[in-house]
């Protein structure tokens, strides 16, 4: 029995460092260290971080074309210690996400390509694979965008199926897919509010808005709600408590990409180890901080994460 991460729309992440990046000009890269290629997509990232924490998982994903093949080879070659893979292959190309980091001007530019089209036949086959893998799953992590062709309410069915299989469900999504996932009442929800700070038609501006939104989700039956608040803080709520998790002091932040996925991995690590939700939220934030301090997707192992826990302080939020 184990952990299953699901990535419907994975990506091959390409990070390029260019000093003084300028739109409309040609930039040549001579130093190989200035470019990095890594498998990506929320679920795959969570599996990668879990591996760093010594926790085995199975990554289920839809791949396509040569990019998909490259992602597969990278994932298998570089991360074959504890990650099992199960792929469904489609005709179109897996997407690529380009990130241009300019350390001189302190800017990040991202270009995300579209993912493949998944037709009805492949969608049904994917759901069959998903169901088969659920038979051996204790924690199921679902998150990220949905590729063209797949129904927007697919997360509703996926959460329901995971719960029927007896798995704890963790959802990390945004917009319509999140809305549908909530209809099946996942155990843990971390709304992705990058871009639009709105969940179930509620605008999130003040801390009170976040708390009210969390209470709304909890009243539906969700056991734990996590909101990223003002970049570096988290509002975490269960039916028994609501806390603001804050970072004590300042850290040298070199990377904010993938920290949300590191958070989920830290959370799953702790829950899988039998920690309660409060302690798990501390592990989760510590994993995100550890990741933020490294340039690549790396939390540096469980010892490093546990060191970061001393940087977190918790403040009870009145209900």
């Amino acid at each position: 029995m184990g952990i299953l991460t699901v990535t419907l729309n994975p990506a091959l992440d390409r990070l390029i460092e260019i000093d003084n990046f300028k739109v409309g000009t040609m930039h040549r890269i001579f130093d190989e260290d200035k470019t990095k290629v890594s498998p990506g997509g929320k679920g795959i990232n969570v599996s990668l971080y879990l591996e760093q924490l010594g926790v085995p998982s199975t990554a289920l994903a839809i791949l396509g074309g040569l990019t998909g093949r490259m992602l597969q080879v990278r994932l298998r070659r570089e991360c074959n210690q504890t990650i099992s893979t199960s792929f469904l292959y489609v005709n179109d190309e897996t997407r690529e996400n380009f990130t241009i980091v300019d350390r001189k001007s302190n800017t990040i530019t991202t270009v995300n390509l579209p993912g493949p089209f998944v037709d009805e036949k492949h969608f049904k086959l994917f759901m069959k694979k998903y169901k088969a893998l659920l038979s051996n799953t204790t924690i199921c992590e679902i998150g990220g965008t949905i590729p063209a062709g797949m129904p927007l309410d697919v997360y509703k069915d996926m959460v329901r199926m995971a719960k029927e299989a007896g798995a704890l469900t963790v959802v990390n999504a945004h917009g319509e897919p999140l809305k549908y996932a909530i209809e099946s009442v996942p155990d843990i929800v971390k709304p992705d509010i990058r871009g639009t700070k709105k969940v179930l038609n509620r605008e999130l501006k003040t801390i009170g808005d976040y708390v009210q939104s969390a209470k709304e989700l909890l009243s539906m039956g969700v056991k734990m709600v996590i909101y990223s608040f003002e970049m570096k803080n988290d509002i975490v709520a269960t039916s028994d408590w609501t806390y603001l998790f804050k970072m004590r002091g300042e850290i040298k932040s070199v990377n904010l990409m993938g920290t949300g996925d590191a958070y989920i991995a830290g959370l799953i690590y702790a829950i899988n180890a039998g920690k309660d939700y409060f302690e798990s939220a501390r592990y989760a934030m510590a994993a995100a901080i550890a990741d933020e301090m490294t340039e690549s997707k790396d939390v540096g192992g469980i010892e490093e994460v546990e060191k970061m826990m001393s940087l977190i302080e918790m403040e009870r939020v009145s209900q």
Binding site: R76, N80, T85, S86, K128
Partner: peptide, 20 residues
């Protein structure tokens, strides 16, 4: 071992297997 559990189901067709 290669930790890949990508597999086919017995009721998938020969054509689907070839494409896979």
């Amino acid at each position: 071992m290669e930790r890949d559990v990508t597999a086919v189901f017995a009721d998938e067709t020969v054509e689907e297997f070839i494409h896979a």
